[in-house]
C-alpha cells in the first residue's frame, strides 16, 4: 500500500520552486503565485490515486495553467498590477536589468491570459509547440496563433527584445 502522504510530500517539495517561478510570471504577484500553486497542489493531492506514476508534474502544471486562465484570477491580477510591479524588490541586478524585467513582466500581464501562458510555456519553460498545446489542452495551431499574437504585442511593448522574438512562432 503506497504511502500517499509521503509520496505527495516529496513530490510537492521537489516541484514547488519551479511551479512558483512559473506561477509568478503568470500572475505577476508573489501571493497570487503561492495561491495558484497551493491550489494546484491541493487538487493534485486529491487526484493522487488516479494520476499515473510519473505524470504528477504534468498534471499539476496543467491544473495550474488552467486555473490561471480562469477569468476571476485574471481580474485579481489586473486589480493588483500597478502596486505589485512597483513594490517588487530586485536582487543585485543593474538598474537597466531591473527596468527591463519590470517592463517584461508588465508587458506579460497585458497579454491575454492564454497568450501569457503560451509565452511562459514556450520561452520560460522551453516547451515546444506540441507540449504547450498538450498542457493547455488546445490544438498546436492555436498555440502558434497565440504565440504569433503574443510576440507581436511584446515587440511593441519591448522594442529592445524585438530581435529576440523573431521567428519563434
Amino acid at each position: 500500500m503506497p504511502d500517499i502522504a509521503a509520496e505527495f510530500t516529496e513530490f510537492a517539495r521537489t516541484h514547488t520552486p519551479s511551479l512558483l517561478r512559473a506561477a509568478f510570471l503568470i500572475t505577476g504577484d508573489q501571493h497570487l503565485a503561492e495561491d495558484l500553486v497551493q491550489t494546484a497542489l491541493a487538487r493534485t493531492h486529491r487526484a493522487w490515486r488516479r494520476i499515473e506514476e510519473g505524470n504528477a508534474p504534468a498534471y499539476t502544471r496543467k491544473i495550474m495553467y488552467h486555473q490561471q486562465i480562469s477569468w476571476w484570477r485574471r481580474r485579481k491580477v489586473n486589480e493588483q498590477l500597478s502596486e505589485t510591479i512597483a513594490d517588487t524588490p530586485s536582487r543585485g541586478d543593474s538598474a537597466e536589468d531591473v527596468a527591463l524585467q519590470l517592463t517584461v513582466r508588465k508587458a506579460l500581464l497585458q497579454l491575454s491570459k492564454t497568450q501569457r501562458a503560451v509565452v511562459i510555456l514556450r520561452f520560460f519553460e522551453d516547451r515546444d509547440v506540441a507540449e504547450t498545446a498538450e498542457i493547455l489542452g488546445c490544438a498546436q495551431g492555436t498555440v502558434k496563433t497565440h504565440t504569433f499574437r503574443a510576440l507581436g504585442h511584446l515587440r511593441k511593448a519591448l522594442p529592445e527584445l524585438a530581435d529576440a522574438m523573431k521567428g519563434n512562432v
Binding site: Q30, T88, D93, F124
Partner: peptide
C-alpha cells in the same frame, strides 16, 4: 530576462 524576473520569488 524571464528567468531573471523570477529570481526574487
Amino acid at each position: 530576462v524571464l528567468r531573471n524576473s523570477t529570481e526574487h520569488v
